[in-house]
Write a protein that binds this DNA or RNA. Structure first.
Lengths: 229, 229
DNA sequence: CTCCGCTAGATTGTATACAATCTTCTGATC
DNA sequence: GATCAGAAGATTGTATACAATCTAGCGGAG
């Protein structure tokens, strides 16, 4: 019964005007969290039924994700979640370092201070580690790097970093365990924002470089142990 | 008369399997070259008729371009070519410098030599200037920077640079005249690949930094003179 | 036994049709 | 004259239906 939302002001979970955006978000989230793993075939009828819609809007959502680089669509073959090889991880981290370094330099110029929020997240991360809450750790990690990106005040940089993060997240969800999230990660986050608060972008970039190398190598060692999807 | 291509092997301009990709390419090209200027409303029925298709595949193409950041679609309002403000130009060039610098460093590590092809393009550019062939100049410029990107051997970097280039190209097509393409541009291209051939990525990045600053400022001075779309 | 060619089922591609929403214009009211 | 309600037209959103293509399995030829 469409149009019913209009009568239940402020109670519907989402306005009907952004139904499509919600659909895309749901699909994207499912891909990012590994529910649809790299290489998975995305059958239109199946997905459409799952979302309670016809194939028309679903196909549009897939095209959007294709444009974002999360899905590959072959004519008359259908859509699959974009595969990721070890070289992709190397290339993505190389790219991400360049982008995030730029964000740090711009954030330093703007005297951004992220120490408080980062400290808070560190505490939350300790609790998440104690309870083996991996999704919470992912979210805290994502929030930190999203803050760095936003601090650049460059929406195009934010978008580019978001695209990188999406790809990296897909690999992490596929190959990371709670044990692979050393608490040193959160110390490094604090070191980065400390340097940033002192306006020392160079030092912040140095820590970031080490931070990303460790993360990349951890992923690669686990990725190479398995077959590349 | 669909299906007719199957009989004319090797003569059809494109295989029917990539009809959709051709549609997206045509739309993208029209946006990049300013035929559909920033802010232009993209009416579905009108475009569908122009391409001789129904609105279904056209809408999918628009969703793809939305994912690529070239189009903005508002629910029940339709699609417009993504607007560009002066700050976008600043942000895009900042981002592009970081990306292209990375590409240069990676190209230097790989001992890539682009001197020959760049010299050839310089000669072609002189002819294009003499005949006031602006589209040719744009293409030569694009080809040069695409070579730099490809030399990085990082497909994700290539994609990110391609996205930047698309946005920049839209501004250039809107505000550039032949007179604004000084021949110094092509000298700088040669200086960049010379430094690259000597493995001096630092020098190459220095020239690139100047090169992009000049290009950006030329665009900004003309953009600010008009109303921002 | 292997390799084709063929058919049936599954899946994708898209034109049509209609519903939902927005926009514009008109005319009434103040 | 300004403002607003309402209707008509324009435009977008999507479900349905069917055509085109692909895939898997089967049977026959070599």
């Amino acid at each position: 019964m469409p149009g019913v939302y209009k009568d239940m002001a402020m109670s519907a979970p989402r306005a009907p005007e952004q139904r499509f955006e919600s659909l895309v978000d749901a699909l994207r989230e499912a891909i990012l969290t590994g529910r649809y793993a790299p290489g998975t075939r995305l059958l239109q009828e199946e997905l459409a039924e799952a979302f309670g819609i016809s194939r028309i809007p679903l196909r549009e959502a897939l095209r959007r994700l294709e444009g974002e680089g999360l899905v590959v669509i072959s004519p008359n073959k259908g859509a699959i979640v974009r595969p990721l090889a070890p070289k992709d991880v190397v290339d993505l981290y190389e790219l991400r370092l360049a982008l995030e370094s730029l964000a740090l330099r711009r954030a330093a110029e703007r005297f951004v201070d992220l120490r408080e929020i980062t400290k808070t997240r560190h505490a939350e991360a300790r609790r998440a580690i104690a309870t083996s809450n991996l999704p919470a750790l992912f979210k805290l990690d994502r929030d930190f790097h999203a803050d760095i990106a936003a601090a650049s005040d460059n929406p195009h940089l934010v978008a580019a970093l978001g695209a990188q993060w999406s790809q990296i997240m897909r690999v992490m969800h596929a190959y990371f365990q709670v044990e692979m999230y050393p608490e040193a990660v959160w110390d490094e986050h604090e070191a980065i924002v400390d340097a940033l608060a002192h306006g020392d972008a160079g030092a912040a970039v140095n820590v970031l470089t080490r931070h990303l190398s460790e993360s990349r190598d951890a992923i690669l060692s686990h990725l190479r142990a398995r077959v590349s999807v």
